[in-house]
Amino acid sequence: MIRIKCPYCGLRDHSEFNYIGDATKIRPVSPELANDEEWFDYIYIRDNPRGVHQEYWQHITGCRSYVKVLRDTVTHEVLKTGLPSDDLLFSYEAEK
């Protein structure tokens, strides 16, 4: 069990969410200008960090928002949550 704080709805069980995946990969803003390497990286390359990981969860049975979650993959501790536009790692490290 993990409890995740939806920025809108508050702290909820993870069963209300769908795990989506890595939130550090950003879709090429100009798809036609991105080269093969960038596309390959965006679609296929995923880190598997031991420790802090930024990922998307969708609050599927709640408000349906996509929630960015900063989670420790070792302890499962949810360190921080926010909206897709938030850089959680940056603010987490700044606070540290």
């Binding site: 769908n18 989506i20 879709r27 998307y56 969708q58 599927i60 349906r64 928002s65 996509y66 897709p84 536009s85």
Partner: peptide, 13 residues
């Protein structure tokens, strides 16, 4: 539906 919400919320807000 989730895919479309993802596109709207994450890619093209």
């Amino acid at each position: 539906l989730s895919h479309m919400e993802y596109c709207l919320q994450v890619h093209w807000p």
